[in-house]
């Protein structure tokens, strides 16, 4: 459960103060699948960074699972990122020279968990990459890399997975595969997933679309998701793994 009240982020460039976010109010309930849309410079990446606890708002309140994040120190934010948040980036951001399973196990390492390999292997299975566990990023295709990144984001069972243009570096077919993974995670495991995107095709997969412009929320509407170009399948129907 995420709630933002009047979140404002002001950057000072030289003597100029630029508001990247200007009083954003947003609630994300558990189990939601939403996209945050907006043109370049609308502040969606800044919003993403704040929700992701990578950055702090200048003003306003951010409550994550009942916790006032703005009061937390660096170390506590690191713990929040580790336990409650999962990131998927446009450029995958995998560590070079590290096998898929080790990448996925990394958040567990920082959490100090035992049983890491087993949990990581299960996460890789969820994204359909069990057979690629010991491949390194350079040996994986773009879609596979992104799925490793998704596995890494979900391995710690976070409250929310934040995806910043996750299909931005992928072709249409691969994008659809990746979106399919997200859809399954949301539908079958009730994971909360928020996308930042400017692609309507991507947003079309989600159940709610929030529009951002000039640092403000200008639209917030439910969406009937369309999967792989056809209307949403009933929940009970299992999709074949991509």
């Amino acid at each position: 459960m995420i709630s933002l009240h009047g979140v404002t982020k002001i950057y000072t460039v030289g003597t100029q103060r630029v508001a990247a976010l200007n009083g954003v109010d947003l609630e994300i309930a558990d189990g939601e699948f939403l996209s945050i849309m907006g043109p370049s410079g609308s502040g969606k990446s800044t919003l993403m960074n704040i929700i992701g606890c990578l950055d702090r708002q200048t003003e306003g309140k951010y409550i994550l699972d009942g916790l006032d994040v703005s009061r937390l120190g660096d170390n506590q934010l690191a713990i929040i990122r580790n336990r409650r948040l999962g990131f998927v980036f446009q450029s995958f951001n995998l560590l070079p020279r590290m096998s898929a399973i080790d990448q996925v196990a990394l958040p567990l390492l920082y959490r100090g968990a035992s049983n890491r390999k087993k949990v990581a292997a299960a996460a890789l299975e969820l994204v359909g990459l069990s057979d690629r566990a010991h491949h390194k990023p350079t040996q994986l295709s773009g879609g596979e890399q992104q799925r490793v990144a998704i596995a890494r984001a979900l391995v710690a069972r976070p409250s929310i997975i934040l995806a910043d243009e996750p299909t931005g570096a992928l072709d249409t077919k691969t994008s659809m595969d990746v979106m399919e993974v997200f859809r399954q995670l949301n539908e079958e495991m009730q994971m909360t997933i928020a996308f930042v995107t400017h692609e309507h095709d991507v947003a079309a997969y989600t159940r709610r679309i929030v529009s951002l412009r000039d640092g403000k929320v200008v639209g917030d509407r439910p969406n009937v998701p369309v999967y792989a170009g056809r209307p949403a399948a009933p929940v009970e129907e299992k999709e074949a793994a991509p």
Binding site: D74, A78, N93, L94, L95, L106, P107, Y110, R152, A156
Partner: peptide, 16 residues
Amino acid sequence: TREIGIRKAIGAKRMD
């Protein structure tokens, strides 16, 4: 630097 950023994003503390 990027690796450090990634590690921090997924929960590495300063001390880590």
